[in-house]
Measured scan of single mutants.
Amino acid sequence: GMDVRRLKVNELREELQRRGLDTRGLKAELAERLQAALSGPSSG
């Protein structure tokens, strides 16, 4: 899988935006949010 901790802030935001998620917050928050999205149930 993707290691969200290795991504830069702008990369985290890009991935979040692609999934329609909130791109605001600290890098740690963005990484946590993206990780949750990646490990969560895949819809679609």
Rank of each mutant, 00 (worst) to 15 (best):
M2Y: 10
G40N: 13
G40D: 11
K27Q: 08
V4Y: 06
M2A: 07
R18K: 14
P41Y: 12
D3F: 08
G25P: 00
G25K: 02
G40H: 13
E15G: 02
G44V: 12
A36G: 06
Q35C: 13
L7Q: 03
A31S: 06
E32N: 11
G44A: 14
L30M: 06
R24T: 13
L26A: 14
L12G: 00
E29L: 06
R33N: 02
A31G: 04
G1M: 14
A28G: 08
D22P: 10
G1Y: 10
M2W: 11
E32Q: 14
E15Y: 06
S39W: 12
R5W: 15
L38R: 04
L34N: 00
D3G: 06
L38P: 02
L21Q: 04
K8F: 05
D22N: 09
T23F: 07
G40F: 11
S39G: 12
R24H: 11
D22W: 02
L26E: 12
A31D: 03
L12K: 00
P41Q: 13
R19I: 05
V4N: 03
T23Q: 05
K8P: 07
E11V: 06
R33Y: 03
L26K: 15
R33M: 02
A31F: 09
E14N: 10
L21F: 04
K27H: 13
R18M: 06
S42I: 13
T23A: 07
E15I: 07
G20F: 04
G20D: 04
E15P: 00
L21E: 03
T23Y: 08
D3Y: 08
V4T: 06
S43F: 12
S42N: 13
L7K: 04
G25H: 02
R6K: 15
Q17A: 15
E11R: 08
L7P: 02
E29K: 06
R6W: 10
V9K: 09
R13I: 11
G44D: 11
R18F: 04
V4S: 03
S43I: 12
G20T: 01
A31W: 08
L34E: 00
A28F: 09
L12A: 00
G44T: 13
G20M: 03
V9D: 05
G20S: 04
G1V: 14
M2Q: 08
E11M: 06
E32S: 10
L21R: 02
D3P: 06
E32K: 14
N10P: 08
L21Y: 05
A28I: 07
P41F: 13
A28R: 12
L7E: 02
M2V: 12
R5M: 13
D3I: 08
G44H: 13
D22I: 04
G44L: 12
G20Q: 04
S43N: 12
K27R: 12
D22A: 06
G44R: 08
S42A: 13
R19N: 03
E14R: 15
V9R: 06
A36Q: 11
E14A: 15
P41T: 13
A37K: 03
S43T: 12
Q35M: 15
L30N: 00
S42D: 11
L34I: 02
R24D: 07
L26Y: 08
R24S: 13
A31V: 15
L38K: 03
R24P: 02
G20R: 04
E32L: 12
L26H: 14
A37Q: 04
R6G: 10
R33I: 02
A37W: 11
L7A: 04
S39A: 14
R13N: 01
E14K: 15
G25W: 02
G25M: 01
S39K: 12
K8G: 15
G20A: 03
T23D: 07
Q35E: 10
V4Q: 03
E11K: 07
R13E: 03
R13W: 04
Q35D: 05
K8T: 15
Q35R: 13
E14Q: 13
L16M: 02
R13G: 00
E14T: 10
S39L: 13
N10R: 15
M2E: 06
V4H: 04
A28E: 10
R18V: 05
K8S: 15
L12N: 00
G44Q: 12
L34T: 00
S42Q: 14
A37L: 06
R5E: 09
S43E: 13
L16D: 01
P41R: 06
N10C: 09
L26D: 15
L16T: 01
R19T: 01
V4I: 12
A28H: 14
L30W: 02
R5T: 13
S43D: 13
Q17P: 01
K8Q: 09
M2H: 08
E14I: 12
G25Q: 01
L26Q: 11
L30G: 00
S43A: 13
R6S: 12
T23R: 04
A36E: 08
R24Q: 09
L34P: 00
L26F: 09
M2S: 07
P41K: 10
G20P: 01
S39H: 13
R18W: 04
E29N: 05
G40R: 12
G20H: 06
K8E: 12
S39D: 14
A28K: 11
E11A: 07
K27A: 08
E15S: 03
K27N: 03
L34D: 00
S42F: 11
A31T: 07
E14C: 15
L38H: 03
L7R: 03
L38N: 04
E32P: 02
L34H: 01
L21D: 01
A36L: 10
G25S: 01
R33E: 01
E15K: 04
E32D: 10
V4W: 07
D3R: 07
L16Y: 01
G20N: 06
N10H: 15
R24A: 09
A36I: 09
A31M: 15
L34W: 02
E32V: 10
G1R: 09
L26P: 14
R33T: 02
V9I: 15
A28S: 10
R19M: 09
E11F: 05
L30V: 01
E11G: 04
G40V: 11
L38G: 03
V4C: 10
K8A: 10
S39I: 12
D3K: 08
G20Y: 03
K8W: 05
S42T: 13
E29A: 10
V9E: 09
E15L: 09
V9W: 09
R13K: 09
R5G: 12
G44W: 11
E29R: 04
L21V: 03
M2D: 07
V9L: 15
A36S: 08
L16S: 01
L21M: 07
G40K: 12
E11S: 05
E15Q: 09
G44Y: 11
A36H: 09
R6N: 14
L7N: 02
G1N: 12
R18L: 08
V4P: 09
S39P: 05
R5D: 09
G40W: 11
L7W: 10
V9Y: 15
R33L: 03
P41G: 13
E11D: 06
L34F: 02
V4D: 03
M2N: 07
Q35A: 12
K27V: 07
Q35P: 00
R6A: 13
G25D: 01
R18Y: 04
R13F: 05
L34S: 00
R6Y: 11
Q17V: 07
V4M: 05
R19L: 15
N10L: 07
L12Q: 00
R24G: 08
S43G: 13
R6M: 11
R5P: 07
E29Y: 03
E29P: 01
E15A: 09
V4K: 03
R5Q: 11
G44P: 12
G1S: 13
P41M: 13
R13L: 06
S39F: 13
Q35Y: 12
R24I: 07
D22V: 04
E11L: 05
R24W: 08
G40P: 11
K8L: 08
L21W: 03
R33W: 02
R5F: 14
G20C: 07
D22S: 14
Q17D: 07
L7M: 15
A36P: 00
N10M: 08
A28V: 08
E14F: 14
D22Q: 05
S43V: 12
R19A: 03
R19D: 01
E29F: 03
E29S: 05
P41E: 14
T23S: 08
R19E: 02
L30H: 00
Q17Y: 11
M2K: 09
Q35I: 15
A31R: 14
Q17N: 10
L12T: 00
E32H: 11
G44M: 12
L21H: 04
K8H: 10
S42Y: 09
A31Q: 14
S43K: 10
L7S: 02
P41S: 13
A36N: 10
P41W: 12
S39Y: 14
E32A: 15
S42L: 13
R19K: 04
R13H: 03
L16F: 01
G1F: 13
L30I: 03
R24Y: 06
R18N: 06
A28N: 09
A37I: 06
R18A: 07
R6F: 11
L26G: 15
N10Y: 11
L26T: 15
S39R: 15
G1D: 11
R24N: 11
D22T: 05
D22K: 06
G20K: 05
M2L: 15
